[in-house]
Every structure is written in structure tokens, then in C-alpha cells.
Amino acid sequence: MPAPVRVAVVGAGGIAKACHLPALRSMAAAVEVVAVCDVDLEAARRMADDWTIPRYFTDLDQLLADQTPDLVIVSTPPSVHREPVIAALNAGAWVWCEKPPVLSLAEYDEIARHERAGGPYVSYVFQHRFGSAAQRLRELVANGALGRPLVALCNTLWYRPPGYFEVPWRGRWDTEGGGPTMGHGIHQIDLLLSLLGDWTEMVATAATLDRETETEDVSFAIVKFASGAIASVTNSLLSPREVSSLRFDFTHATVELEHVYGYHNANWRWTPSATADVAEASTWTPVEDESGSHQAQLRRLLDSYHRGERPAASGADGRRVLEFVAGLYQSAFEGRTVRRADLDSSNPFYRSMAGESPAEFADLLKPTKGDDHAQLRRPVRS
């Protein structure tokens, strides 16, 4: 059995306590948590005490020099992903970084230049693709057992009260990179893309209907895939009955998932078509029942680490969902169809999810009030 992987946690906030540290504790034989780092000394000290972590730091460079971790988990707010990820890679450590990966495609590509063949690599937290049912569905899509993908629905309908946005970094382009599309729906979108592959074009709209935020609080997109499939994608923070749902219609089956923040096999429904092989359909549901969790992704990340192979949700595989979000925002801002091929380095939405004019985009998202209905403003393009 290989020696335990030495792990450092950067960011002593809620996501580390709720998700990362429990996942690490569940794999105590495979990992050793050697240190925690946070700019808030007391927060770092409390986490070290509460989770029996031997050392705590406020300076990441010092932690990296003193502890030489094998893996660094970055669980800071989105605007504080880039620097610690690059620092850890440059120190030779693999990285597991919370979503959204970074604030732009440009930042993502900059980080990728600090990776090296065989590692270190950085993988991003998209845990929903790692549950048993999602893994089984991916196999069935790949081997053609379900037929061609035709129609998909992807909904993240969550609720965040007005007070949620009182946290200074939330709801701002420069610190969060977007609204529910970027920070919440990105999980379901990644799961959608991991199953259906590359998208080719989309048309979208977004608006700030009710919350005090410069980003959107709701977005919609119609998306075409290279396979020929068409999907609708909805993201909202205004929905009192919360649900995360996906539906896939293949030529031989409909596969549905409904949950909120995590799933097991019971959250999935498999419905064969009238022409499907019933005997084969009985094998579609996986025997193993693993949730789409941080623990599931961490276990696979450690396997990749020991093999020296690029992990899932990394490189081009991790970048695809950021391309999707950038394309959605550009389509919503410019009121036109956007192709995935448009998102090269010359595109302003490559450098920022709000393009060149975050203030103009923020103003556009707020509907004007007419006598009978609200209308979204569109920028005038010469």
C-alpha cells in the first residue's frame, strides 16, 4: 500500500468544513492532513484544533516550504483560486480546487501552463459526475446501449434569500465571476457535459429579477451538441422549492435524475422505450450505490495521483464547463447565437465572464418596467 498522501487545506471556511475535511477523514488510511492555511489566523487555528490538524499557517508560501505537501486543496472564494493553485503547482504539489475553477478562460489557461506531464496537475471539484449512476450512464452512452442522445433538460432551481448576497464577494463579476450559472448550476452543467460531450452553439438569456446583485439571478439557454442532441439549461436562485434535475431522452430510453445537493441511485429513474431490449434494460441501474460526493471524486483523484496520470475534471475536461458559461453569458449579453468555436483568446468573454463591460452587462440584466411587462435591454452594436 502506498504511503499516505500529504494534504494541505487552503481556506478555513464552510466548504472545507462541510465537504473537504469529512472526505479526507473518511479516507484516513490514504491521506495525512498536515496543515491548514487561511489569511485569518484565528480561523486557521480553530480548524486545526477542531480537526486535529498539526499545523496552521497564514502564509501559503511558508506552508509549502515547511510541509512540502503532495496535494493542496484550495477551498477559498473564487477570486482567490488562481494564486494558490499556481503557487502549489510551482512547488510540485497536485491541486484539487473548488468550483468555479477560476473567473475566466484566460485564467484557466494561465494555470494550465504551470502543470507538467506526469504531474503536478490541478483538478476541479465537480463531484456530481462521480456517483455510481452517473458513471454507469456514461458507460451506457459510450457503448451505445441507450441509442443516440436526442433531448436533454438540465435544471438547477435553487433558492438564496436576499441576505445571502450580503457576503461582500458574492454577486460580483470581479470576485465570483457570475451568478447562479457560474456558482451553482455549474455542477449540473458539468454533469450534463460529461455525459453528452462537446457543445457546439447556444442561444441564451439572463436577468436580475429580484436580488440585489450585479450578476444574474436567473438564466436560460438552448444548446446544440456535436452529437446532434439539443438541451435546455435553466439556472435560478429564486426558486422556493429547490430541485436539481437532469433528463436525457435517448432513442432507447429516458434517464432522469432529481435531487438537490447530492444523489444516490434512488434519485435516478430509467425508463426503456417500447422498442428497447427489456433484458438489457434490467442491467442499466448500477449495483454499487455511491453518491456524487467529494469523497467519490477524491478517491479517484488519489488513484490518478499514484499513477501519475491526469485526473478527471482537469485540463480540457475541466475547461469545457467554463467555455459553456462564457458562451451563455456572451449570448445573453449580445442577444445572439454563440458558437463554442467563437471563444478563442480574441473574444472579450475569454478574458472575463462579463466581457469588456461588466457595468453595461449588469445594467442590461435588470429588466425595464413597461406598462404591461418587463423587457430585457440589449446593448446596441454597430
Rank of each mutant, 00 (worst) to 15 (best):
E216M: 04
S219M: 10
F220N: 11
A221M: 05
V223G: 04
K224R: 15
K224C: 13
A226Y: 01
S227I: 12
G228C: 09
I230C: 10
V233M: 11
T234M: 11
N235Q: 11
S236V: 11
S239K: 10
R241N: 12
S245P: 08
S245A: 14
S245N: 07
L246P: 09
R247L: 10
F248C: 03
F248M: 02
H252Q: 14
T254I: 13
T254V: 15
V255S: 03
L257A: 07
V260I: 13
Y261H: 12
Y263L: 02
H264N: 12
N265A: 14
N265K: 09
N265I: 02
A266R: 15
W270M: 09
T271C: 01
P272M: 03
S273V: 00
A274E: 14
A276N: 07
A279S: 13
E280F: 02
A281V: 08
A281M: 06
S282N: 04
T285I: 13
P286L: 10
E288M: 10
E290A: 08
E290K: 10
S291F: 02
G292R: 06
S293F: 09
H294A: 11
A296W: 13
Q297S: 12
Q297A: 13
L298K: 01
R299L: 02
R300G: 01
L301P: 00
H306I: 00
H306L: 12
R307W: 02
R307K: 11
E309R: 06
R310I: 10
S314Y: 05
S314F: 03
A316I: 06
A316C: 00
D317Y: 04
G318F: 06
G318N: 06
G318S: 09
R319P: 05
V321E: 00
V321S: 04
V321W: 04
F324I: 03
V325E: 03
